[in-house]
Each structure stands twice: as C-alpha cells, then as structure tokens.
Design a protein around this nucleic acid. Structure first.
Lengths: 222, 222
DNA sequence: GCAAAAACAACATCTTTATGTCATGGCGCC
DNA sequence: GGCGCCATGACATAAAGATGTTGTTTTTGC
C-alpha cells in the first residue's frame, strides 16, 4: 500500500466536511484529492482530481442521490476505490443496504476524528471498520438471527425524535404552507420557523423542504 | 341596497387580481376596499379596510387555506358579507363544498368581466349566480339526482390532465429532487423544468412545490 | 396541410428557502 | 448553581423556486 492514500470526502454539511477535510489532510497518510457535497457533485468533479481516489468517505444523508444510491455509480467509475459510509443512522436496514451496495465499512458520525483516521487505515489494510453498535447487526445477521427490530438502543442518534413544536412545524410543511404562513399559524416569527426547520433537517438528515416531504410521502402511506 | 357596495377581492395570482380590481373599481356600483392574495392576508388586512366589505369575490385555489376552507373564517368576522366563489374547477364536489360552506354563488374563471359585474349585482340583489355548467349540478342535486360522476364535460378546466412529461417531472418533485437534479435526470435544461412545473401548477391550481406535494400527500395514501 | 398542443429553451425579476452565526429566557437535572 | 435542551428571535448571504415574457421545434389531431 503506497502512501499517501488518495482520499475523497462526500458530505453535504459544509462545517463537517471542512472539519474532516482539514483533519485528514493534515495527516501524512492521506492526500485529499476531492471533496464534494453530493454524489452528483463528486462524479462531476472526478475528472479534475489530481489522482483517482482510493478511499472514499461518504455521508449517507445527502441531497439528491443518497450515499447508498450513489454507491453503485461511484464503483462503476472507480472500481478500485474503497468506500466507507458515514451516517447518523444506526438502523439495521441502512447498514445492510450500504454493505450490500458495496460499502466496506459503516461508521457513525459521532466517531472521534482520531478513531476515524484509524478506521480509514484499517480500510486501506483490508479491514471493515464498524462503529460498535453497527457491528452487532452484522454479526447477528451472519449468525442467522432475524435481527431483533428494537435492538438499537445505542443512544447514538438514530432517527432522532422531534420535539412537539418541531412536529407542529412539520405538519405545516406537509399541509403545503410556506414558512410565513406557518409563522402566522403559530404566532411566531419567520426566523423562529426557520430555526425549527433547521433542527428538523438536522435530525431527519434532509436538506430541503422537498426531501422532507418525500420523507413523509414514503412513510405516511404506510 | 346602498351604493357603492364595499367589495373585497381574494385572488393569489397578481395579474388576475389586478385585472379584477381595476375593472370593478372603475364601476360606480363598487368600491374596492380590500384586495388580498390569501384568506390569511385578507383577515389580516381587514382592520385596515376603509369599510367592511359587503361583497367578497374569492378564488378557491389559494395558497395556504383554500377559499373553501377560508369561508367559515371570513363569515365569522363578517357575518353580513356575501361571498362569491371564483374558480377554474367545475367539479360537483367543490361546488357543493363551497355552497355548503356558505358561498352565495360559484363562477368559473372564464367568466367575462362584464358578466362578472352583472353577477355581483345579482348577489347584491339577493341572487345566486352560477356559471352555466355549475348551475346544472345544483339543479340536479335538488332534483334528487345522484349527480352523474362523469357529467362534467364542460370543456372548462376541471382537474386538467397532466401530460406524460409533466407527470415525470412531478415524480421527480415527489422524490424530493431539486429542479436542477430533475433537469439532469431527464437531460433537459433547468428552464424547461421550470416551464413544465409552471404548467403543472396552473393545471393543479397550486402555487408552490409545497402545495404540490401536499396534493400528492392527500391523494396518494389511500 | 394547418392549427393546436407539447416540449424545449432563454432571460428577467422577485420571493422563498437554506444555512451560518449569535443571543436570550425558561426548565429540568444532577 | 451550572449544563444542556428547548423555544424564541435577529441578521446576513447564497441558492432555489415562482412567475412573466417570448421564441423555436416537433408532434399530433382533424
């Protein structure tokens, strides 16, 4: 394995992306050749990269194509690359989807930077790093267990629960109202509506009204 | 009946609102005391009106509360006012909903301005103007007919049918994609997506992505 | 073949959203 | 009492969406 490894980062949230980029780039083992805020952006910027990425660290909750949906597209272009998923979700469904789609590992976003670096080195060495709670699903699945559904009490951030105020705001969105009308409906300021929406987006891992409603469309019609 | 009558107009589309306002204000029989682009806006602006409106001309396809949903709210504030609905919809369902909610008449939007004025005067005189196709529903309902469902071949604009291209675009919206991603998905320009969306909005009588998706949320989950 | 409809596209302008940053008061909890 | 979370609010900027106008090229129905 030659060093430094060519690394790419796909993460929509700018501050997180910058933090990852700055920390990992500072390591002698890695060379960040590309960062993107979406799978689409990544594929588009690929030709401009100094070297083809060997390691890709990709978020799952991305605008447009999700990280999981993007996996096959990336592998088509970069068959050699190893892709490590990063997510706030710790549910068995997503973990399996990601691994079936070809991810080599699955880390939660609360992983400290230093550990993240170690995990990336493990990947380069042929390993498959998993956050502790995540690994259990895989082990259980291999053991033939049916994966107990309420088996996810890692108090890490699964589909984080919305506060009642936040759910009221979401209801307004689902009714097709604008922020302004929601503000009037609840007698609060436009800025406050924005702040609640912001919290909802973070918790549900979406980045637009459209995605939020698509979310509702997918789960509401049971 | 004292003249001029105090008239209010609720219509979200600015050009239509302006046309109505300019034409009707120019008539000696009417004094436009208020125009609004939504029921919410109307109620908010009410205290500032020179006189309480006696006649209200309200669109049905409004952002936020629909004209029908807004009817009871308006009547609560203005028990004396007579409310005439204006719509591009000519389906029995909406007509009955509007009349049950307390509208005194139901006109289609293709009604010429001169006739509209006459209809408003009829309202003031205690009449209940209906566009020709609309009146039939009411008559049939009174006659005890079960209102034949495919009885609406007035080639006026009922829930207009979307073209297949438009449905593809809507599907993209429902998937939570941005216009840009939809354009990429179908290999067309951003402006073309906007144009299709524009046509969809007109046909479905909505004014925002949010309303469009709320529309989908309401009809999809059955 | 002609007229209507549909698909495509560009350009302007204004509004709404998305996101970053910062701040205050209330509440529950160890 | 301090810490974290919640609700509220403001200010700023950049991106996305809504809407008006206009034009070309294909379909498609009669």
């Amino acid at each position: 394995m030659t060093f430094p490894m060519a690394l790419a980062i796909i993460e929509d949230q700018a501050p997180i992306r910058e933090t990852l980029n700055e920390y990992l780039c500072a390591q002698p083992e890695f060379q960040c050749v590309l960062t993107a805020d979406s799978v689409e952006g990544f594929l588009h910027a690929l030709p401009a990269a100094a070297r083809p990425p060997q390691l890709i660290l990709s978020d799952i909750g991305l605008p447009g194509l999700t990280g999981i949906q993007g996996l096959p597209l990336i592998q088509e272009r970069l068959p050699e690359a190893q892709i490590l998923m990063l997510s706030v979700y710790a549910d068995a469904e997503r973990v399996f989807q990601a691994l079936r789609a070809g991810a080599v590992g699955y880390l939660l976003k609360n992983t400290p930077l230093a550990q993240l670096k170690e995990h990336l080195l493990q990947v380069a060495a042929g390993g498959s790093p998993m956050s502790p709670g995540v690994a259990r699903y895989v082990v259980q699945a291999f053991a033939g267990h049916p994966v107990p559904p309420p088996m996810l009490p890692l108090e890490s951030l699964l589909p984080e629960t919305l506060t009642s105020r936040e759910m009221e705001i979401v209801r307004g969105i689902e009714d097709g109202l604008s922020y302004k009308l929601i503000a009037e409906r609840h007698h609060i300021s436009l800025d406050t509506v924005r702040n609640h929406i912001r919290a909802v987006y973070r918790k549900l891992q979406v980045n637009s009204k459209g995605e939020l409603m698509a979310h509702a469309l997918k789960r509401r019609p049971h």
